[in-house]
């Protein structure tokens, strides 16, 4: 039974990784801690829900739609709001995004109410030698890996990807090379947001959630990024593993609420003892 829980934990880690990588990207380029990240996840999840379960569009098409919509929304948020505060101390952007998150969260609660929602696309479970895992989780895990690999390719091979990487390392030099850094920021923010949104789609296929999910998950995502180390993508996966496993194991053996306690405890401990996480780069601290 325990191994089953561990497997679920690993699969959950995949989902967390996708969202956390988005958070990492945004911090790297904009130097902004996106406290509204959880809300993008929530919006992705519930838009996916509305399109698939309510309107009846096929999940694949809905998924793409969600990506496009959130991308555009995030572009607007960056262009009109975040852009105004990127040059100011972090406290300011934090407060701005806090306001944004409050706005979206309550908008979500207004539109979708506080009922629990979920989407059941594939109900089958796979049994291998006494263990049974739901098929959808496995599929999602592989899609998550696919997305991460796709992102890695984007970062390595495309112009925008290189622009993102160089901005993360040295913004002034990047500008000096003639890159329109404002566009890079807009794109990165939107990219991070859709990663969160896709993660949200995965979430609502696995769990039942309410629009409050944004607030509860943002701390877990920060925990993932901090444990794994800001600036390192492999680190993010490791961090996701730690957090996801901590969560599922404590939830299973003690209680769900203890799962939360365990995560926060890990988060606070890491913040205090080793703020740069496993593989993070010291300079960010």
């Amino acid at each position: 039974m325990g191994i089953q829980v561990v497997i679920n934990g690993i699969l959950l880690a995949g989902v967390y990784t996708v969202a956390a990588v988005g958070l990492n990207l945004i911090f790297g380029v904009l130097r902004v801690a996106n406290i509204a990240h959880g809300e993008f996840l929530m919006l992705g999840a519930f838009l996916f829900f509305s399109l698939t379960a309510v309107v009846g569009i096929s999940p694949f098409i809905s998924f793409v739609f969600v990506g496009v919509l959130i991308f555009l929304l995030a572009l607007a948020v960056e262009r009109f709001l975040v852009e105004r505060v990127v040059k100011q101390p972090m406290a300011i952007s934090l407060l701005l995004l806090y306001g944004v998150s409050i706005f979206f969260k309550n908008l979500g609660l207004n539109i979708w109410t506080s009922n629990y929602r979920s989407i059941n696309i594939i109900n089958r479970t796979i049994s291998v030698g006494g263990l049974s895992v739901s098929l959808i989780r496995i599929i999602i895990f592989f899609i998550a890996i696919g997305l991460t690999i796709g992102l890695a390719v984007l970062l390595k091979k495309t112009y925008i990807g290189k622009a993102i990487r160089s901005t993360t390392q040295n913004p002034e030099l990047t500008v000096a090379c003639g890159v329109d850094i404002k566009k890079v920021r807009m794109f990165t923010f939107a990219l991070g947001a859709i990663l969160a949104a896709f993660s949200g789609c995965f979430f609502i296929m696995i769990y039942s959630i309410t629009p409050e999910v944004g607030s509860s998950i943002i701390l877990k995502l920060f925990a993932v990024v901090i444990v794994g180390g800001l600036g390192s993508y492999l680190g993010t996966f490791l961090g996701a593993l730690v957090i996801a496993l901590a969560e599922v194991l404590t939830s299973f053996y003690i209680s769900t609420q203890f799962g939360d306690v365990a995560i926060f405890a890990v988060f606070l401990l890491v913040l205090i003892i080793r703020p740069q996480g496993f593989l993070g780069e010291r300079q960010y601290v």
């Binding site: 801690a33 934090l94 701390l219 920060f222 203890f258 926060f264």
Partner: peptide
């Protein structure tokens, strides 16, 4: 003494985490 060693967003989010931590303890 512990939290104020953290900078900017780490402190902000850390305090948020702490309040959720307290809530979780209060529940349990």
């Amino acid at each position: 003494l512990v939290m104020l060693r953290l900078k900017g967003p780490y402190f902000a989010v850390g305090m948020m985490g702490l309040s959720q931590f307290l809530a979780a303890i209060a529940f349990n």
